[in-house]
């Protein structure tokens, strides 16, 4: 592979844009296809499948074998709340392949000492989140327990089509939250997308255990097909 091609691939990923590296195995010829260029490509149909599923695969074209290396943006986790659970969740999620950003305007919580090597934004969600450009490859976990911080973040995540939206709090807390969000004009269907109380029910007790349950739910939402997801819910 040409170094320039490898660097182009890395640049697309860094910019959170999907692309496919097409390798003709026999001849060793390679090219990079960005999602905007896919429809006009001779392999348009296979490329469409590649972008939809995010999975790499081998394509048989007569005698020629072509490998499609698919790159979709890395899943990203945005957390509101520089809290104890986040201290456990951030490194775990990073290991599992998520880019992690923590948003909390409370500067006593959002300190680099508490969160070494984490992208930490000591700002209100209405400032931090537009800059982060939430997208369908992003998950949002609202963990502050404070409606002033969590509610606007949840509203933004639902509006931007985040693949996962979860919120900490008891069923009673969540019922009150749903009323507040409905008052903001968010529809019933969108509100039903919020995972609350957040995390898989594994009887988690400590902050670290709750972080495990949240990460497991995140991975399940990311990897399972929708029908399987509904059965498991």
């Amino acid at each position: 592979m040409e170094l320039a091609l490898l660097e182009a691939l890395n640049a697309e990923r860094a910019a959170r844009r999907a692309c496919v590296l097409v390798t003709e195995i026999g001849r060793g010829r390679q090219r990079l296809v960005r999602s905007a260029e896919a429809a006009a490509d001779p392999l348009a149909e296979a490329l469409a499948e590649a972008f939809r599923t995010g999975r790499s695969f081998m394509l048989e074209l007569g005698n020629e074998r072509v490998f499609l290396t698919v790159q979709v943006p890395s899943p990203r986790l945005v957390i509101t709340g520089a809290v104890h659970i986040s201290q456990a969740l951030a490194p775990m999620a990073r290991t599992a392949g998520f880019d992690v950003t923590i948003v909390d305007p409370r500067t006593a919580f959002a300190t680099p000492e508490r969160f070494p090597d984490v992208d930490l934004r000591a700002e209100w969600p209405d400032v931090a989140l537009p800059a982060l450009a939430l997208d369908p490859f992003t998950a949002l976990a609202a963990l502050t327990h404070d409606p002033k911080i969590d509610d606007p973040a949840l509203a933004e995540a639902l509006a931007r089509g985040c693949f996962y939206v979860g919120a900490l709090g008891s069923r009673k807390t969540h019922a009150a939250r749903l009323e507040r969000l409905a008052a903001r004009g968010i529809g019933r269907e969108a509100l039903a997308r919020i995972h609350a109380p957040i995390g898989l029910d594994i009887g988690a007790a400590s902050s670290a255990e709750i972080a495990v349950s949240v990460l497991a739910q995140l991975v399940g939402t990311l990897r399972r097909r929708p029908a399987e997801r509904e059965q498991a819910a």
Binding site: M1, L3, L6, E7, L9, N10, R13, I25, S56, M58, F67, T69, S74, T95, G97
Partner: peptide, 27 residues
């Protein structure tokens, strides 16, 4: 622990540094 993107970044970085580099892909 290295993620997939770290691997491709490393391959590019090593090559820029002048090292001989090969990339293996499960196809």
């Amino acid at each position: 622990f290295a993620r997939e993107e770290d691997v491709l970044e490393a391959a590019a970085r090593w090559r820029r540094e002048g090292r001989g580099v090969a990339l293996a892909t499960v196809v």
